[in-house]
Design a binder for these strands. Structure first.
Lengths: 133, 133
DNA sequence: TTCAACTTTGTAATGATTACAACATTATAA
DNA sequence: TTATAATGTTGTAATCATTACAAAGTTGAA
């Protein structure tokens, strides 16, 4: 599904910048930050404001089009994959990887209505582990 | 195990403030923030600096004595329970609850060395659900 | 007792994010 | 088509949690 279809389905007016920002998030699986999105798009959109990237990602998030990936002590990242999955964060190279959860996390909620679940791991990735040896 | 024993075991010099701060975290299961710890202790310790609370919680965290509970868009919280467990955050009352994980989260890590796992849920707690009806 | 190491403090700096107001663009209905 | 309201975009300033830093206080070992 492409950016235009998604915005149309969610009744979000598909302005040029919204399309470009959503398209960037959908096509970069690196969990980009606001700055990364801004730097990537500023070249072809010289008047782009960082505030617009903040505003737009906020609209996309609030409408469930993208997910936020919060990593402690770092700027927010955005993820176009809204299926249930976890993230692993490498504290050496700062990359964020997708983690397929092999079974649903079962927990005792005692009347709590869950709206969002976040499973995240931090440590050292395969690549950085190799470099260490 | 009390605060003094813990600090001794970890070879952290048990200064008066460190003992009080750790004691507060151990005895308040509410996942307090820096500000909450500071406000609670300033009365009996009029010269206490917020920087000291930051410094001390950092030392405690780095030595594995307490855990950080990061909730997006809110100041960091601290948890004296270092056993594996999740957290649920109520977006209405802003309380944070402990969640017992009924089975270990299994995931495919592909060479990633996990040092820390965070499982968190957000939504509406039992109490606030009741108020809604 | 003295000196070095460590702890505590207050202020200033940092950095991500939001508030806000001006300006630009688009949609709608007369 | 034109007028007007609604929405989108921008830049600057404000906010707020956290960290940096340097000065002052405290502690403990030689």
């Amino acid at each position: 599904m492409n950016a235009l279809q998604i915005l149309h389905d969610k009744k979000i007016r598909p302005s040029g910048l919204r399309l470009k920002i959503l398209d960037y998030i959908l096509n970069h699986k690196t969990h980009p930050t606001i700055d990364e999105i801004y730097e990537a798009l500023i070249e072809d959109n010289p008047t782009l404001s960082k505030t617009t990237v903040y505003n737009t990602t906020k609209v996309l998030f609030e409408n469930g089009v993208v997910k936020q990936v919060a990593i402690e002590g770092q700027p927010m990242r955005y993820d176009g994959d809204i299926k249930m999955h976890g993230h692993s964060f490498c504290r050496m190279c700062n990359n964020v990887y997708d983690v397929e959860l092999l079974e649903e996390v079962k927990a005792d909620f005692n009347g709590f209505t869950v709206e969002d679940t976040q499973v995240s791991y931090s440590g050292i990735c395969k690549n950085c582990n190799t470099k260490l040896n």
